[in-house]
């Protein structure tokens, strides 16, 4: 709707058209915001309600007497501090591993010529489609034989590589002009130095995107830690939440409080890196 060639038969000013459109779309906007947003509001209201209000289904639309103690109780009931620590260790290690393995592979695939390059790339991308549940059983047996069940090794190593990351870096490195590489090579740098000193710093947007998406995915992951941990001391936050449900299935106010504080880090990361996250998702969808 820039000042375009005036349409001959539609002498409506851009401003008025926008205005008319606005009222036409208001109902849709309201519906969408209520459908997607109200559950979040309701979870928070539930987390501040009394157990009686929950049990009798008489929760006020606005929490006039918020029970903040629910949060304290939910935190105290399970060992969430330990679970947060475990999850942080897992998420940071997986994220770092993926950044390293992906940038190395992405660099080789984008900037080096060798036989079988395309086949290798296809080999990586094809793994994106495999549901983890299909390969989980053999990996479980492998982890058990390595005596890695219930250790960080099992939580980290199987997910240390991610084809999405390889793809992301490859795309990014493809856009960097070859002159950078040539200049560095002339200075006597070997490919290892070229990658980490020249290319990797330039790929910061890819690194930020991959790190944020991986961290959030690890924070939220359930099935892998569910299979590969055994004792409560190794639980991650999502497992802790499920265990909490096992003990307090119908104590919804405490459950909702736990749900809220477990989701906070994800939203903080999103608000900090909104652009990188959205672009990362969009990149796979449309680049080109």
């Amino acid at each position: 709707m820039v000042e375009a060639t005036p349409a001959p038969k539609a002498p409506i000013s851009p401003k008025r058209r926008r205005h008319a459109g606005f009222w036409r779309y208001v109902p849709y906007m309201v519906i969408a915001i209520v459908v997607f947003g109200f559950p979040f509001y309701w979870i928070i209201v539930g987390s501040l309600s009394s157990n009686t209000a929950i049990a009798t289904g008489s929760i006020p639309l606005f929490p006039l007497h918020p029970r903040w103690a629910n949060y304290r109780d939910a935190w105290a009931y399970t060992n969430f501090a330990r679970q947060v620590l475990n999850t942080l260790i897992m998420a940071v290690a997986v994220t770092a591993s993926q950044v390293i393995t992906s940038s190395m592979a992405g660099f080789a695939l984008a900037r080096m010529r060798f036989p079988g390059r395309q086949a290798l790339f296809i080999g990586f991308v094809a793994t994106l489609i495999i549901p983890f549940q299909v390969i989980a059983l053999p990996i479980f047996v492998l982890m058990a034989n390595l005596h890695w069940i219930n250790t960080f090794g099992a939580l980290i190593v199987p997910t240390a590589v991610n084809a999405f990351g390889i793809f992301l870096y490859r795309q990014f490195f493809l856009t960097i002009p070859e002159s950078f590489e040539e200049a560095a090579m002339l200075d006597g740098a070997n490919p290892w130095q070229v990658l980490w000193r020249v290319y990797w710093p330039l790929a910061k947007p890819a690194t930020v995107t991959l790190s944020l998406l991986t961290f959030i995915a690890e924070w939220n992951s359930f099935y892998l830690p569910f299979l590969f941990t055994e004792t409560k001391s190794m639980y991650t936050v999502q497992l802790g939440l499920v265990a909490f449900q096992g003990e307090f299935a119908t104590v919804y106010n405490l459950l909702m409080a736990a749900t809220v504080f477990i989701s906070i880090p994800v939203f903080v990361l999103y608000l900090m890196g909104q652009r990188a996250i959205i672009e990362g998702i969009a990149t796979t969808g449309t680049k080109g």
Partner: peptide, 28 residues
């Protein structure tokens, strides 16, 4: 020599992908 570099860069990703994707598929 460049091929050796390429192999080095790809080794972690290739080995991990082989161990944690292709071997499990065959095993299943």
């Amino acid at each position: 020599r460049l091929r050796w570099w390429a192999a080095l860069f790809l080794a972690p990703a290739v080995i991990l992908t082989a161990v944690f994707f292709y071997y499990p598929m065959a095993y299943i």
